[in-house]
């Protein structure tokens, strides 16, 4: 079984790195770690980078997950190949561009581009935000799925993810104590549905709501509160239509052995207990 430790980074293609940089710093509030020729590295926590914009097609979206060591990486590669997934062994140069020791790339059953990485770099300097959004770190992603039941099997049986809760047939899955690291979203094709950063307090969620509204950043859902994880949230739209989320107060699963996923009905109140309705953002549809 592939032991995912945590989500490590997201890589996004963008035709316009300048707009991406403006949004990432002036709106989202991340710190620029490094500007390469064709890459923009952004920090959100103690890691050297957690988001990278690369000059290119915005449909190129990749999620990196950390695994324990190189032996686990080799084992993962054999497991995936035996299941019929084409595995790309990352070159030294590609690994350097990702600021990791080694990695492999493959596609999940829906076709999402996933990378498994070993020893992603940390930074010696603490994170210093470009605006006071209260970001404490990159935390999870929403991942498109053309068949949530099939993909749930992939993430929970081939990998070590566990279902924390379900809304309809949409699973929220964890790979560590945090309520969810991967939220599947029913969609016709592969892609990252949203990128989540945690913030310090619910004050930060509300402050950003007014701040982003003032700057005409489209707020697509919230401010609200998920009854599943308990998190207060705000979803808004960035460059190339990518949706970003701030949230705070995601529950931790206290007892791994006895936790049973709860079933929530597929209805608006299962996504927001405050009464927020999504606007300009599709809820995972049945």
């Amino acid at each position: 079984m592939i032991q995912l430790k945590d989500v490590s980074y997201v890589r996004l293609g963008s035709p316009d790195l300048e707009s991406a940089e403006h949004f990432a710093t002036a709106c989202l509030g991340l710190q620029i770690a490094e500007r390469g020729k064709k890459d923009l590295y952004l920090r959100s926590d103690e890691r050297a980078h957690t988001l990278c914009y690369s000059e290119g097609d915005p449909n190129h979206q990749t999620v990196g997950f950390e695994v324990g060591d190189e032996a686990s990486l080799q084992e993962a590669a054999s497991t995936l190949e035996s299941l019929g997934h084409a595995v790309h062994a990352g070159s030294a140069e590609e690994a350097e561009r990702r600021k990791v020791k080694a990695f492999i790339g493959f596609r999940d059953p829906t076709g999402n581009h996933i990378e498994l990485v070993v020893r992603p770099e940390r930074s010696g300097r603490r994170y210093f935000a470009s605006r006071d959004a209260g970001i404490t770190g990159f935390s999870h992603i929403g991942l498109n799925s053309s068949d949530p039941a099939r993909d749930e099997r992939f993430w929970t049986q081939v990998c070590n993810a566990r279902v924390s809760d379900r809304i309809g047939d949409i699973p929220l899955m964890r790979v560590n104590a945090i309520h969810h690291t991967i939220a599947l979203v029913r969609a016709p094709k592969a892609g990252i549905q949203h990128i989540n950063h945690q913030v310090e307090t619910s004050d930060d969620v509300l402050r950003s709501y007014y701040f982003l509204n003032d700057r005409r950043v489209p707020i697509v859902f919230g401010p609200g509160r998920h009854p599943t994880s308990g998190a207060r949230f705000l979803y808004f739209k960035g460059p190339d239509g990518m949706i970003f989320e701030y949230s705070v107060g995601v529950d931790e699963i206290e007892d791994e052995a006895t936790h049973r996923p709860r079933q929530f009905g597929f209805e608006p109140t299962s996504f927001c207990m405050w009464g927020a309705k999504p606007a300009g953002m599709a809820l995972p549809n049945n």
Binding site: P223, R232, M273, W274, G275, A276
Partner: peptide, 10 residues
């Protein structure tokens, strides 16, 4: 806060 926000949407 939950009730502040619920009442806001209400």
């Amino acid at each position: 806060l939950d009730q502040i926000m619920q009442n806001s949407y209400f």
